[in-house]
């Protein structure tokens, strides 16, 4: 019964939201090479194509080491994978390089979007220091973190945003260890606590919401904007390539990955979940959680609820 209501709701609302976004972007030139070597069903690729369509040609794009770098967005040999200026920062200097570019364009009096599309490793782990520094200095850059919850380009190793109990090749499941023993770093909230002009979470299942957030980020002129984009990885998370969007949607519907935005640290939810689903429905379709017992699922449910409640207590 719940599922039917849900389907009706989908048909009534989200369908038209998709339509509006689709009409808006379908005739915009795709600024990414049509053939880049992402895995089948790559979530990060969806996010990048939409972002470039929203920001347009007057953009300088940073693609650090990671999946998007590995698939050829910065090109190979004497070629480029994008139709905007694109460069390959170091894994740990993304925000600093962006800041340098933006400062010089400011100096020249030229307006340009300086945009990073970086994975969670370069964002939450090794590149965190310079991102935090850039946020504190109010560098006017736009930073999108595509979070596929691990080092996927190098073959599925754990990162700071890998969730509790998730399997990766460096947090294997065996007799004494059952996936990652620690909870994930709450990266978007940490960024919000920098009290920068704009921070948001986004999901590739809710592209209309994502697009709105990109536009808000583009408008920021007095500091850093950060978007934490949830991008499931069929290869690393162990699910079939057609389920990328569905899994993203489930993560939102179970409050595993709630959608919100924060202006100068003030948090507001952007997607009300009318029919909250148990987190089990999300976990059971993602292969990296296939080892979980009922007790472990209960534990994760509790952690998800706690994190959501904490967020709610911070939200307006």
């Amino acid at each position: 019964m719940g599922e039917t209501i849900d389907k009706i709701k989908w048909l009534l609302t989200d369908k038209y939201a998709n339509k509006a976004l689709e009409e808006e972007i379908r005739d915009i030139e795709d600024l990414l090479s049509p053939g880049v070597s992402t895995c089948l069903g790559c979530g990060a690729e969806v996010g990048l194509r939409i972002a470039l369509k929203i920001f347009g040609k007057n953009t300088i794009l940073a693609i650090p080491p990671g999946c998007m770098g590995g698939v050829g967005v910065v090109g190979y040999g004497l070629t480029t994978g994008a139709k905007v200026p694109v460069f390959f920062p170091l894994l740990d200097n993304i925000a600093s390089m962006l800041a340098g570019i933006k400062r010089q364009f400011n100096r020249k009096g030229e307006k340009v979007y300086v945009l990073a599309y970086a994975g969670d490793g370069g964002t939450a782990d090794v590149g965190f220091q310079c991102l935090s520094g850039a946020a504190e200095r109010d560098e006017n850059i736009i930073y999108i973190c595509y979070d596929n919850e691990g080092y996927m380009n190098t073959g599925i190793q754990r990162s700071g945003t890998t969730p509790y109990k998730a399997w990766t090749t460096t947090t294997p499941v065996g007799e004494s260890r059952r996936g990652k023993p620690q909870v994930s770093k709450n990266m978007p909230l940490i960024m919000a606590m920098h009290e920068v002009p704009y921070v948001a979470t986004a999901s590739i299942a809710y592209l209309e919401d994502y697009a709105t957030k990109l536009k808000k980020a583009a408008k920021v002129e007095d500091g850093l904007s950060y978007i934490h984009l949830f991008t499931p990885c069929p290869t690393g998370w162990r699910f079939s390539t057609d389920k990328t969007i569905e899994i993203s949607r489930l993560a939102v519907e179970t409050n595993f990955f709630p959608l919100w935005e924060a202006k100068y640290g003030k948090i507001r939810f952007t997607k009300k979940i009318w029919f909250k689903k148990p987190v089990k429905e999300y976990l059971k379709v993602v292969g990296k959680y296939s080892h979980l017992t009922e007790e472990e699922i209960e534990e994760i449910q509790k952690l998800v609820d706690e994190r959501y409640d904490m967020l709610k207590s911070l939200a307006r």
């Binding site: 053939g35 090109g75 004497l78 480029t80 994978g81 139709k83």
Partner: peptide
């Protein structure tokens, strides 16, 4: 630097 479009 890269100039031509990389396409697979």
């Amino acid at each position: 630097i890269g100039k031509d479009l990389y396409v697979i």
